[in-house]
Amino acid sequence: MEKRLGIIGIFIQDRSKSAPAVNKVLGEYSSIVVGRMGIPFREKGVNCISLIIDATTDELGALTGKLGMLNGVRCKSLLA
Rank of each mutant, 00 (worst) to 15 (best):
M1V: 06
K3E: 15
R4D: 11
L5H: 13
G6V: 05
G6W: 13
I7S: 07
I8R: 02
I8V: 15
I10E: 13
F11I: 02
I12M: 05
I12V: 15
I12K: 09
Q13E: 12
Q13W: 07
Q13S: 14
D14T: 08
D14E: 13
D14G: 02
R15D: 02
R15E: 14
S16F: 12
S16T: 10
K17R: 11
A19V: 01
A19P: 00
A19H: 06
A19N: 10
A21E: 13
V22M: 02
V22A: 01
V22N: 11
N23G: 04
K24E: 15
V25L: 12
V25R: 02
L26V: 12
L26M: 08
E28D: 11
Y29G: 00
S30T: 09
S30V: 04
S31F: 09
S31E: 15
S31G: 05
I32H: 10
I32Q: 11
V33R: 09
V34I: 09
V34G: 12
V34R: 14
V34Y: 15
G35V: 00
G35D: 05
R36D: 09
R36N: 07
M37S: 10
M37E: 12
M37Q: 09
M37K: 11
G38T: 05
I39R: 14
I39C: 13
P40E: 11
P40V: 03
F41N: 07
R42C: 01
R42V: 00
E43P: 02
K44G: 00
K44T: 01
K44H: 13
K44D: 07
K44M: 04
V46K: 06
V46D: 01
V46L: 02
V46T: 03
N47Q: 07
N47P: 03
N47I: 00
C48F: 15
C48T: 11
C48V: 15
C48W: 10
I49W: 13
I49P: 07
I49Y: 12
S50V: 10
S50P: 00
I52L: 12
I52S: 06
I52D: 06
I52F: 05
I53T: 15
D54W: 06
D54N: 15
D54K: 07
D54F: 10
A55D: 05
T56Y: 04
T57M: 08
T57D: 14
D58V: 09
E59C: 00
E59D: 05
E59K: 06
E59A: 01
L60M: 08
L60N: 11
L60S: 09
G61S: 12
G61T: 10
L63A: 01
L63W: 08
L63C: 11
L63K: 03
L63V: 06
T64S: 10
T64D: 02
G65I: 04
G65P: 06
G65N: 14
G65A: 06
K66F: 01
K66P: 12
K66Y: 04
K66S: 08
L67S: 03
L67W: 13
L67A: 03
G68H: 02
G68D: 06
L70D: 13
N71K: 13
N71D: 14
G72S: 04
G72K: 06
G72T: 05
V73F: 09
V73M: 11
V73E: 13
V73H: 12
R74V: 03
R74Q: 08
K76C: 05
K76S: 04
K76R: 10
K76T: 04
S77F: 09
S77V: 03
L78Y: 14
L79V: 07
L79Q: 14
A80I: 00
A80F: 04
